[in-house]
Computed example of a mutant assay.
Amino acid sequence: MVALASLPLSVLYVIADGVYLLVAYVVRYRWRVVTENLRNSFPEKNETEIAALARGFYRHFSQILVEILKLRTISHAELQRRVRMRNPEVMTDLFDQGRTVLAMGSHAGNWEWILSAGAFWFPDKADGVYKPLSNPFFEDFMYRLRTRTGARMVPMRDTLRDLVRRRNEVRSLSLLSDQAAGPEDQPYWTTFLHQDTSFYTGADKLAAQFHYPVVYVGIRRVRRGYYEVWLAPLYDGNSPLDKNDFVLAEKFARQLELDIQAAPTEYLWSHRRWKHKRTPKPAV
């Protein structure tokens, strides 16, 4: 792995082109899931257009794979050059006020590079919540990648405990808020990309309890290997917030929907985002 990650990105992208041909045309990795997700999300598009979007996604996905691998050896200077933040003052102004910030991100663009680059933009202040992998080898491998530049990882199950223990620290805590929330998570349901969709409500609950400001993190590929990140304030942490109104989950869903529609091939369509169905409330 290290030897492969040591190759220049220009060489890794040649490998990515081969991976693209393999997963899109030979293995057809999760082709049915990808095309079904695209078809339901863009009902106005015909089958030719859906297939073109699917191929665009597989090309993007193949490049993401080698970019994530490159985190093992990429220099600080190169990562900073390849990932630019449009408006870091949204975060730094809150840090200057002594505030901890919740950052709501998604599986768009290169989500792994954002946190690693964030450790450069905001030294000692970039933490990320994650769900540990069941495979010990890949869990260790991904943990090392994610923390190599100085970011700190917080297991999802330990989020509340970590916030209480480190309540006096000024930092950002990143949440990938577009994962498929199941019934046990008591999700918020809304219409998202023309589908009934469940969202985690952790940001609403934590912001209401700790009065944390919340920002949306957007990312867009500028060209191959280069990304632009921007921040959009969702909640200032000052006004009262009802954790049961799910205002933040709804704002996040609307902003993410716009971003996906603007760059549809850059979202993680192989993820089974809509595997859960809403359970009807029992009749009174």
Rank of each mutant, 00 (worst) to 15 (best):
residue 61 F to P: 10
residue 68 I to S: 04
residue 138 F to T: 15
residue 127 D to V: 10
residue 56 G to S: 08
residue 72 R to D: 14
residue 76 H to I: 00
residue 91 M to K: 02
residue 53 L to N: 05
residue 91 M to T: 06
residue 120 F to P: 11
residue 82 R to A: 01
residue 60 H to R: 09
residue 80 Q to K: 01
residue 73 T to Y: 11
residue 124 D to L: 12
residue 90 V to D: 07
residue 80 Q to G: 15
residue 141 F to Y: 10
residue 123 P to R: 02
residue 58 Y to I: 13
residue 114 I to N: 07
residue 103 A to T: 05
residue 108 A to K: 04
residue 97 Q to A: 14
residue 101 V to L: 10
residue 86 R to D: 15
residue 132 P to C: 00
residue 140 D to N: 15
residue 81 R to M: 07
residue 84 R to Y: 10
residue 121 W to Y: 15
residue 102 L to Y: 05
residue 146 R to C: 09
residue 110 N to P: 08
residue 98 G to V: 13
residue 100 T to R: 08
residue 65 L to W: 05
residue 104 M to I: 02
residue 85 M to W: 00
residue 126 A to H: 06
residue 100 T to C: 05
residue 126 A to V: 01
residue 88 P to C: 06
residue 95 F to V: 11
residue 143 Y to F: 06
residue 60 H to Y: 13
residue 58 Y to N: 00
residue 131 K to N: 01
residue 80 Q to W: 07
residue 51 A to C: 11
residue 141 F to N: 03
residue 145 L to H: 07
residue 92 T to C: 15
residue 68 I to W: 03
residue 104 M to L: 10
residue 75 S to D: 14
residue 97 Q to N: 12
residue 72 R to S: 02
residue 71 L to R: 08
residue 128 G to Y: 06
residue 98 G to N: 09
residue 114 I to C: 08
residue 119 A to D: 12
residue 96 D to N: 13
residue 60 H to E: 01
residue 114 I to D: 13
residue 75 S to Y: 11
residue 94 L to W: 00
residue 82 R to C: 09
residue 107 H to A: 13
residue 81 R to S: 14
residue 110 N to F: 00
residue 80 Q to S: 13
residue 138 F to L: 15
residue 69 L to N: 09
residue 55 R to M: 05
residue 89 E to R: 12
residue 110 N to W: 07
residue 135 N to Y: 02
residue 82 R to S: 13
residue 76 H to T: 10
residue 132 P to G: 07
residue 105 G to N: 09
residue 63 Q to K: 08
residue 63 Q to I: 08
residue 61 F to V: 03
residue 142 M to Y: 02
residue 77 A to G: 10
residue 136 P to N: 07
residue 54 A to C: 12
residue 97 Q to C: 09
residue 65 L to K: 08
residue 108 A to Q: 09
residue 72 R to M: 05
residue 66 V to G: 08
residue 101 V to C: 12
residue 74 I to Y: 04
residue 139 E to A: 09
residue 97 Q to M: 15
residue 69 L to R: 01
residue 105 G to T: 11
residue 56 G to D: 06
residue 61 F to G: 09
residue 118 G to R: 00
residue 55 R to I: 00
residue 127 D to I: 03
residue 128 G to N: 12
residue 70 K to E: 07
residue 115 L to T: 10
residue 55 R to K: 15
residue 92 T to R: 14
residue 107 H to L: 06
residue 98 G to I: 06
residue 74 I to Q: 08
residue 65 L to E: 04
residue 60 H to G: 02
residue 70 K to Q: 06
residue 70 K to W: 01
residue 144 R to K: 14
residue 64 I to W: 01
residue 63 Q to V: 02
residue 56 G to M: 12
residue 117 A to S: 03
residue 142 M to E: 01
residue 141 F to C: 03
residue 128 G to D: 11
